[in-house]
Design a protein around this nucleic acid. Structure first.
Lengths: 140, 140
DNA sequence: GTGTTTGCAAAGTGTTTGCAATTTA
DNA sequence: TAAATTGCAAACACTTTGCAAACAC
């Protein structure tokens, strides 16, 4: 099993985001911010928490994911109408999405070059650019 | 008002896609394939049909949009978890999505250059690449 | 006639909300 | 103790489905 990030570090993260360190937020933080980049759904993270023996409701997982996203601890990735993904990698980057197993993989942005994008109108403010490479598994 | 595409042309389109030209499919086809590129939601297209005096249920609009997408008459665009958009422009191209008014605009692909994308693994088969430029309205 | 499509209502999914109980500061 | 958060259930929004009636071929 991977090493678990100590509460102290997670505590500091929450504190600096202005979020009260409740038991549930700490549990989810430790699952999410374990050192490697993760892509989770509410459902998936909830199962994970339950499986690890914690008690937390699905509604709270949604609340926490939304709170973390508002606090810029997570980034929401839209690849699937009907299911939200949350990414612990909040730096600018792109994704490969496998439509067969619903798996998201990061693409480092420094490798990607985008040219020829249109000039926005004077009333449009750029939020972000998403590049999604959709793949399926090759049938053997 | 724009000119309405004659039934004959729409009929041929449906026929060649192997779809029976039912009254409802013809109604939606004439709204969709009116010569210019359109981005619609099921809800939006349904309202449009109703407002134009036609009788059609929302379930049928969903059925028809899915049938048209399977027949490659439409392309589904995923920009919003919780709502599907359908695009009458089935050529390869990208989008600007205005998150304030949920408006989609096409970007011609020939202007866009994407470099440095990762090499897919041997079991991955490319489906498509989506580039979405997310914008909001500038607050005055 | 046979198979397809429609339309309604019901069911299904993923997500949010109202509110009392609990917890944090 | 005042304000924020939780958890449940109910509400929600979007979409699909089951099935009888209507329709296309």
């Amino acid at each position: 099993m991977d090493k678990i990030r100590p509460y102290s570090k997670v505590l500091r993260t929450l504190k600096s985001a202005g979020l009260r360190p409740t038991k549930q937020r700490l549990v989810l933080s430790r699952l999410l911010f374990d050192g490697k980049n993760r892509h989770v759904t509410a459902e998936g993270l909830h199962s994970e928490a339950i499986l690890s023996g914690q008690k937390i409701s699905l509604a709270t997982v949604y609340n926490v994911l939304n709170a973390f996203t508002s606090a810029d601890l997570l980034k929401e990735i839209i690849v699937d109408s009907g299911c939200s993904y949350f990414d612990t990698n909040i730096t600018e980057h792109h994704h490969i999405f496998n439509e067969d197993n619903n798996e998201l993989t990061d693409i480092k942005i420094k490798n990607v070059e985008l040219k020829g994008l249109p000039i926005l109108t004077s009333c449009e403010k750029l939020q972000r650019i998403d590049v999604i490479i959709r793949v399926k598994n090759k049938s053997k």
